[in-house]
Amino acid sequence: MVPGTASDRLTVIAWPLSSDNGEMSDSGDSLGGFLRSRRARLTPEEVGMVSYGTRRVPGLRREELAQLAGVSLTYYTRLEQGQAMNVSDAVINAIGRVLNLDDDERAHLHTLARPIRRGREPQGPSGGRAGTVRLIEAMTDVPAAVLDRRSDVLAWNRLGHALLACHLDFGISAGRPPNLTRMLFLDDRTRALYPDWEREALRAVASLRLVAGRYPDDRGLAELVGELTVKSPEFASLWADHPIRTCFSGRKRFRHPQAGDMELEFGILHVPDDSWQRIMTYHTIPGSPSDAALRLLSALAHARPALTGPDEATTARQTGERL
């Protein structure tokens, strides 16, 4: 199957979920899709093999990868179809070595090859924990938000809201919280916020792929992926490529409608409990132009309500219902 085709997108929408009896309807899709995407990136010449004849599809063939990894073609085919059980570390590592996987991709391969059923829904409160919310509210000069593993916004402080979603109402609905990934792909104002939108989009999908591998039974996550796949061709194309990346810190450029251009460093802290919640914060280098821009945004955020007029408030509420 060629990534990005209509058939591949239908496979993504039909994300495997546990049935009522606990069995998976199609446990091989994520693992098989990941392996096929990485095989397609390599040529026989890159792994020291001689290519003969005409190839109908790019990349390594199954039999070539199996030969290089030292496993039988039958066994590798079963693995790619999600039918192999008790896969050893040696086999996984051999396949990862042939595919030239980096550390994040290799860890993801281990997760997909030996999935752990963790239940469909996150445990713990549906909103941010009270102590965590109070913590970010105390960070008056630092943009901060509390996210769940799906990147739903459970809470944000005044400056975090002003930075990430000044066009939305500050209040968060428990039934339909803003989702940063959905906003990135489906909301024009959020897209305009990032001058490096393609980079942000790749980072968001790569992170979501990791979460999907770790929590394959999360129905809410499956619904989010299905929605974005249908509504955003850009998301569907990126998702089909199976990007993988662990990202706990880095830099992001913003083109804010109120404070102008700024480059902020971000960090992600995971709450040490079973809620799977994390805190995202942003900061700047003191004295830099970005620091001045962030101070301006802070002054604006604390000097007036998040929304300044009835028309804007109505628009934001309508937009928030979609996001």
Results as ranks from 00 to 15, higher is better:
R182N: 00
L79T: 09
G226F: 05
I13H: 01
R209N: 11
T308F: 03
G124P: 07
S18W: 03
T74D: 15
G82C: 01
F170N: 00
G250C: 12
G32E: 10
G22T: 12
R55N: 14
E223G: 01
A236R: 03
D218Q: 14
E121P: 03
P143R: 11
T246N: 07
M183K: 01
L264T: 01
A192T: 04
L300H: 06
Q277Y: 04
A192R: 15
F266R: 01
R219S: 09
Y282P: 01
P272I: 02
I279A: 06
D102L: 10
V146Y: 05
L193F: 09
L238V: 08
T315N: 08
A293K: 00
I92S: 09
G320T: 10
G53R: 08
E223A: 15
P195Q: 08
D217L: 00
M49I: 14
G53Q: 10
V142Y: 03
F248G: 13
E321D: 12
V142P: 01
V71D: 04
C247V: 11
H270G: 06
V153N: 06
R278P: 03
F170E: 15
G213D: 01
A240Q: 10
F254L: 04
L208S: 11
V91Q: 06
L164S: 06
I95R: 02
R255M: 06
H283V: 04
G32V: 09
R214K: 10
T77M: 09
G22C: 13
T140E: 12
D20S: 14
T308N: 13
M262C: 08
S19F: 04
E265S: 14
H302E: 05
L99S: 05
E198Q: 13
G82F: 01
I92W: 04
L296W: 06
E23M: 09
G119A: 03
R191T: 07
I92A: 11
E198M: 05
H256F: 02
R118I: 02
R56T: 12
P216W: 00
W276M: 11
G128E: 01
W276F: 11
R295Q: 14
G160F: 07
A303I: 07
H242M: 11
G128T: 02
P122C: 08
V87K: 04
V271C: 09
P177A: 04
R120V: 01
R304E: 14
I92D: 02
G171H: 13
P286H: 14
P178Q: 02
G213N: 00
R55W: 12
A14M: 11
E105S: 10
C247A: 09
A192V: 02
L135F: 12
V98H: 00
H161W: 15
R253T: 10
I116P: 00
M24D: 13
I13T: 08
R39I: 02
R9Y: 03
G250E: 08
G48H: 04
A299D: 13
A138R: 12
R278N: 07
R62A: 13
G226L: 07
L164T: 00
D148V: 05
A155Y: 00
R176H: 15
W156M: 08
V142H: 07
N21Y: 04
V146W: 04
